[in-house]
């Protein structure tokens, strides 16, 4: 089990390294006039040269990368070229907000998706069609469109929730809950469908398995076979989908945050890329990569716990 986890983590580290190299060199194509922009349009060549030296873009690219990678390994992702803020700190504090949105929606998605999927698989008929219809609708409507609709109805027309803005949980927990309800719901609606469909499909598969018949032949009622055996065996594929959904939700959060003016990764990503603030962009890419790798490893671990074949090999 331990070697299993460490193997997964090693692959993850390799991925993040590749990601870092690719992103860094790719971003070099866009930095030609960054120093000029930092120094201001009126600044002369001398002033620009000073800025170039300060942020280090006067050195060869490979030296810049080695320098960046060296300090990144110690947890220091450098400083923003524009605001001078520490990147590690800026990205981490915003990542916390984004991840809390994503985790909230994953939990909600799991609860509702599994319940609806199980309902559709066991009841079939109308509830099945209803769930499938909801699933298609949720998948089809882009998340931000859903978010817009929610804002228009629940925030602007009904005034139940704040339309925009974010209250930190440290300031007021009810306020925080109110401020993240609409974003989380908007994100969740889109992802329930996929999970419900998956759970439905793998449960219907599991129903036709030989061992279900054998368990039923022992006199176990259908209900208890479904709740224990069918659901347990459908859990593996559902987990995989939930893991994939997390990455999608993380991406969705970027857009939804901008819409709700929530100070997460999204707005930071927007400003830093439009400015060409390479240290911040790199920081966002790397920290996101790390979060995804950790979540995927966690999914694999839970997967192994659910499936003894994986656990014991």
């Amino acid at each position: 089990m331990l070697s299993f986890v460490s193997r997964r983590l090693a692959t993850g580290v390799g991925l993040i390294a590749t990601l870092a190299v690719l992103t860094f060199f790719f971003l070099q194509f866009g930095v030609s006039d960054v120093a000029q922009r930092i120094a201001g349009q009126q600044a002369g060549p001398d002033a620009v040269a000073v800025v170039e030296e300060r942020i280090g873009v006067d050195r060869p690219v490979q030296v810049q990368f080695a320098d960046w990678a060296g300090s990144a390994l110690t947890g220091d992702l450098g400083r923003s070229w524009f605001s001078g803020q520490e990147v590690t700190e800026a990205v981490m504090s915003r990542m916390a907000v984004t991840v809390s949105l994503a985790v909230g929606s994953v939990v909600l998605t799991a609860l509702l998706g599994i319940t609806l999927g199980a309902l559709a698989a066991t009841r079939r008929g109308w509830s099945d069609r209803g769930v499938q219809f909801l699933a298609v609708l949720g998948q089809a409507i882009p998340g931000f469109l859903m978010a817009m609709a929610l804002v228009l109805v629940f925030a602007i027309n009904l005034d139940w929730f704040p339309a925009t803005g974010y209250t930190r949980p440290s300031e007021s927990v009810p306020g925080w809950l109110l401020s993240i309800t609409l974003p989380v719901v908007a994100l969740t609606i889109g992802s329930i469908g996929g999970v419900a469909q998956q759970v439905r499909g793998s449960m219907i598969d599991a129903f036709e398995r030989d061992y279900v018949r054998t368990l039923r032949s022992r006199g176990l009622p259908r209900r208890s076979v479904v709740l224990q055996h069918v659901l347990r065996n459908a859990a593996g594929p559902a987990l995989t989908v939930l893991g994939l959904q997390f990455v999608i939700l993380l991406g969705g959060a970027v857009i939804v945050e901008t819409l709700f003016s929530i100070p997460g990764l999204g707005p930071l990503a927007l400003t830093s890329t439009s400015q060409g603030d390479i240290p911040v962009v790199m920081g966002i890419v790397i920290v996101t990569g790390v979060v995804v790798v950790l979540v995927n490893t966690l999914v694999d671990v839970v997967q192994a716990w659910v499936n003894p074949k994986v656990r014991l090999s």
Binding site: V247, L250, G251
Partner: peptide, 15 residues
């Protein structure tokens, strides 16, 4: 799979 595509697109836009 290890990065939301919107982050990649935003980064690509800067280039």
């Amino acid at each position: 799979m290890s990065l939301p595509s919107i982050i990649v697109l935003i980064a690509a836009r800067s280039v």
